[in-house]
């Protein structure tokens, strides 16, 4: 009896290990291939590199355009993150802690977006952006990604702010504080944990976003990193410089790994708490 459970226990342990391997093996494989020459890569896909070709990374950074697109991504993600966090926070405050006339109506109009699949508006959103002269512009991308108030962010931050006691604002008002002061000095610091969670999510979403920039940006000099990698891959049909592409792939993964290692608990908790981001 003891033996049997021992064997089955090891079997199950193998199952867990194999699933882990499906994630680790491809990533590790890509990393060490990216340090080979093209010849060595074509000759044997298992052999470890004899000499580490770090120059692949240099080539990816310059000739694949990763460097330039990294700057674009930094601008697009950074600015969008700042603006959208500001928009989400002040709106969550306005919708949960201030009484006003149209509040519940506007709230339900915003929540409507949770039921809209979004896939049907690719064309119309593009023509709208084009009519407003916002295509082929990183600022256009930033505007689209940050200014419209998001239902998901509002729900999450709103539920966070509702837990703060009402007396906080009231006593501050009695002491003569203005609305702006109450928001900046009291609500903002206390909501920080929620804002950070939203921020991490926004970062991952913005950094990974492909379809939006792909549709709206056609000038390669303005590509963010995701579209740049897509384009580099499409060009490999003619260049066949695979190790450089792999090096570019590794560079693209690095920011994700850093953010994930730093914030993994928050990310996992937030994903399942929000859950509904469909």
């Amino acid at each position: 009896m003891r033996m049997r459970t021992g064997i089955s226990s090891w079997l199950w342990r193998m199952v867990l290990f194999l699933w882990a391997l499906t994630i680790l093996l491809p990533l590790f494989w890509i990393f060490y291939q990216s340090l080979k020459t093209n010849q060595a890569f074509f000759a044997d896909i298992w052999a470890f590199p004899e000499h580490l070709e770090w120059s692949n990374y240099e080539k990816a950074w310059t000739s694949l355009g990763i460097g330039r697109s990294a700057v674009n991504t930094l601008y697009y993600v950074g600015l969008s993150l700042l603006i959208s966090l500001f928009v989400s926070t002040v709106n969550a405050y306005a919708f949960t802690r201030i009484e006003w006339r149209l509040r519940s109506l506007l709230w339900s109009v915003i929540m409507l977006s949770l039921f809209l699949p979004g896939i049907n508006i690719l064309v119309s959103q593009y023509t709208l952006m084009r009519a407003l002269n916002l295509t082929d512009s990183l600022n256009g991308l930033v505007l689209l990604a940050s200014l419209p108030v998001g239902a998901f962010e509002l729900l999450l931050l709103g539920s966070f702010m509702r837990t703060l006691p009402k007396e906080l604002d009231e006593s501050a008002f009695i002491d003569g504080a203005t609305l702006f002061q109450v928001f900046r000095k009291i609500i903002l610091p206390l909501s920080m944990p929620g804002i950070v969670t939203i921020g991490i999510f926004k970062f991952v979403g913005l950094y990974n976003d492909f379809l939006g920039p792909f549709i709206l940006i056609s000038d390669p000099a303005k590509y963010p990193i995701s579209v740049n990698m897509y384009n580099a891959n499409a060009m490999m049909e003619y260049k066949a410089d695979w190790v450089t592409l792999l090096a570019g792939l590794v560079i693209t993964i690095i920011p994700t790994v850093i953010v994930y290692v730093l914030f993994q608990r928050r990310i996992i908790e937030g994903a399942t708490m929000g859950g509904v981001k469909g």
Binding site: L16, W19, A20, I23, L24, P26, L27, W29, I30, V204, Y207, N208, F210, S226, V227, M229, Y230, N233, L245, L246, L249, T252, I253, T256, V259, Y260, Q264, I267, I268, A271
Partner: peptide
């Protein structure tokens, strides 16, 4: 494993597509 298994969820779509192409 709990942390590792979740990792594909934060990877970018283009990265996943290219990894699987390889």
């Amino acid at each position: 494993y709990k942390v590792l298994y979740f990792f594909p969820n934060v990877l970018s779509l283009v990265v996943i597509a290219l990894v699987w192409s390889f």
